[in-house]
Amino acid sequence: MTAKLTFRDKEFTVKHGMTIRDAIIKCDLSPEAVLPVINGELVTDDRYLKPDDVIKLVPVISGG
């Protein structure tokens, strides 16, 4: 069973049981550069992924 992370138009599938922070790093993203949202609610990244979780990673970096 797996959980899903979405970032902009990308989608990543990861094993459940790890923390969101570890999952973000595993997907080659920076935990500093995104905010994890589950069902519209902001969550801290120490939360463990449950099977079938869908995490939206909101990008926070802007430039220019």
């Binding site: 550069a33 995104v34 905010l35 949202v37 902001l42 909101v58 926070v60």
Partner: peptide, 12 residues
């Protein structure tokens, strides 16, 4: 403020 904090403030 870190960028993720200003983003979080706007979201929340």
């Amino acid at each position: 403020f870190y960028e993720r904090e200003t983003a979080a403030y706007s979201l929340l």
